[in-house]
Design a protein around this nucleic acid. Sequence first.
RNA 1: GGAGCGUUGGUCAAGGGGUUAAGACACCUCCCUUUCACGGAGGAAUCACGGGUUCGAUUCCCGUACGCUCUACCA
Length: 504
Amino acid sequence: MNKKVRVRFAPSPTGGLHLGGVRTILYNYLFAKQNGGDFILRIEDTDQTRFVEGAEEYILKTLEWCGLEPDESPKHGGAFAPYRQSERKEIYKKYADELVEKGFAYYAFDSIDELEVKRKEIANFQYSHATRNQLKNSLVLGKDETRKLLNQNIPFVIRIKIEPHQEIKFTDLIRGDVHFDSSLVDDKVLLKADGMPTYHLAVVVDDFLMQISHAFRGEEWLPSAPVHIKLWEHLFGIENMPHWAHLPLILKPDGNGKLSKRDGDRLGFPVFAMDWKDSNSNETNIGFKEKGFLPEAFINMLAMLGWNAGTEQELYTLNELIEKFSLERVHKGGAKFDYEKAKWFNHQWIIKSNENDLIKDVQILFAKNKIVVNDIEKLKTVISIVKERCTFINDFIEQGNYFFNTPEIIDITSIQPKWDEKKKIFFNNLIAEWNEKFTEISTELESQFKNLAESQQIKAGELMLPFRIMLVGGKFGPGVFDIAVLLGKEETLKRIKKVISLLS
RNA sequence: GGAGCGUUGGUCAAGGGGUUAAGACACCUCCCUUUCACGGAGGAAUCACGGGUUCGAUUCCCGUACGCUCUACCA
């Protein structure tokens, strides 16, 4: 069987895409590209009660930001369209009918309320071989009665008929052989009363029709694997079933359990790839993008959460990941998300990027924050000397703003106590000297500064902090004399004067 | 309750019969830096527990514990 590699990511459009989802996308993408295959985005919107406006658009945008463009999708089109399950309703119905015909599935007329009663009556109630003969379905009703109910338009669902006492097994690409006892598998609903398929039917049908060769999904799907296996057997032949891999979960940093958006709110970090505004609650959840993450770093961090090449390399470009990724090296156990490490990845990527890579993001950022830059070369220089101090792209505001605007907030309190007349005289002399001979060479400025200090018998060290505060406004930033060069004579002197007057 | 899956330092993890049990993040100490960062040096684990198998087990097998996921006409 030498099928072309085709993988799919199949989200239901119910909200923002969180870390786990993007990682699943990433692993799908890496695997596809590594094997010269196709990556398909299929929208699983069969639950109309959970439809969320804008969610599909959001998913597409996220893929774009991450650089993980699908080959086929509702937006990109493709030979297997439509890619929205809600538009494929009739297809599923056909297969559901086929299953009933072949005796692998049956009509069930029990209402949701009736089932609720059963659940209360019987402990651990399952609609299965053990209980189905006491319920209202075509198996106990018989042909004529069933037909009658059908003709009367009594609402019904179609359930799979799982035969007990069989071993159901498959080989997971990550976990190896996994076994189930069919006696413990319930008769899952395949087609809902509204005519829409459930996930179980829809994945199997679409994975077949779309010729999916490998299916990767979260570990939470493992328990429903036997249902899907049965469906493959009944409908398309088990030999045509895609190879499966169930990915480990991404866990919350503290305690245990799946990472949720609540954890992000609680612990103060993003969980979604990009800002997600819930149209119902009108509340916005911040995304990694808006927080100031580089997509490269985001992807890199995600890739390492559950996989590693077995080498010491931690920083990977997308292309390197495509080359090195392997399913066999994906962990079986879930990984706790560590925001500190995520920040480290971003920091590394900012350092790794050069000013030309970063300038566009910084320009956008500056424009948003009304920082006017009219000298692009200066901006580039600023980026290059400041970037190693930035964990987030957004840090360029604090680290870069004072190169273009006179600081408004000046940390005067950290120099005030030690400020005295001698220092004031020094800085006035410095103004006088630089007014005469200010050079664009930082080492030159530095020696002028130090010589002057010496001539006044002041330790240069005591003057450095005040000088920095004058130019920067705070205790941060690159070498002061480099800053002075970039600011230029006029601005430098202006800032010194301003702070002297503030201190007097 | 049942089923499935999992369990190497606080976190991500390498290793997979004999090792001083890598590396990274975080943390602490120190160096560099008269700011903040970068960078550099150093610091912590008998690999959940109990039984086997074996000359020898963190590595293989079986139990136990613990955790997670699922157990919807949600995905």
